[in-house]
Amino acid sequence: MHTLTQRALAPDLARGVMLLLIALAHAHMYLLPQTTGFRSYALDGSTLDMVVTGVQITLVDGRAMPMFAALFGYGFVQIAARQGDDARRVLRRRSVWLLVFGCAHALLLFFGDILAAYGLLGLLFAGAVRWKDRSLLVFAGLWLVVHGAATALAGLQIAEFGGAAGLASATDPVTAMIDRLMSWGVLTPFLLVDLIVPFLLGVLAARRKMLIEPHEHQKALRAIAFGGIGTAVMGGFPLALVDTGVWNGAPEVALYVLHGLSGVAGGLGYAALMGVLAVRLTQGPVVRALAACGERSLTCYLLQSAVFVAVFVPYAGGLGSRLGTAAASGIAVLTWLATVATAEVLRRNDLNGPAETLLRKLTYR
Rank of each mutant, 00 (worst) to 15 (best):
L359D: 00
A327D: 14
P198S: 00
G122M: 09
R208Q: 13
L124S: 07
A165W: 03
A205S: 13
A254C: 02
F139C: 07
A140K: 10
T188E: 02
G112T: 04
L323G: 03
A328S: 15
V287Y: 12
L187G: 04
A271H: 06
L91S: 05
L195D: 08
D12S: 15
R15C: 11
C103Y: 14
M177V: 04
V145L: 14
H147D: 11
G73V: 13
L273V: 01
T188A: 05
L268D: 02
G45Q: 07
L20T: 13
G84Q: 06
H105C: 08
H217R: 12
G45A: 07
L258I: 14
G127K: 12
V174D: 07
P251Q: 04
M234E: 05
L323N: 01
V203Q: 02
V311C: 09
G166D: 04
P314V: 09
S321N: 12
P66N: 05
G122E: 01
L99D: 00
S297C: 14
K219N: 09
M1K: 05
A355M: 11
A168G: 05
E252H: 07
G249Y: 08
W247C: 06
F308N: 12
G119V: 04
G260M: 14
E160K: 01
S95R: 03
A128N: 09
L200N: 04
A176V: 01
E344W: 11
L137C: 02
A338M: 01
S321G: 15
M29T: 11
Q78G: 10
H2N: 03
P238V: 10
V203F: 01
A64K: 09
V313G: 10
L98D: 05
R130K: 10
D113T: 00
D194P: 00
A8V: 13
Q78E: 10
D243G: 11
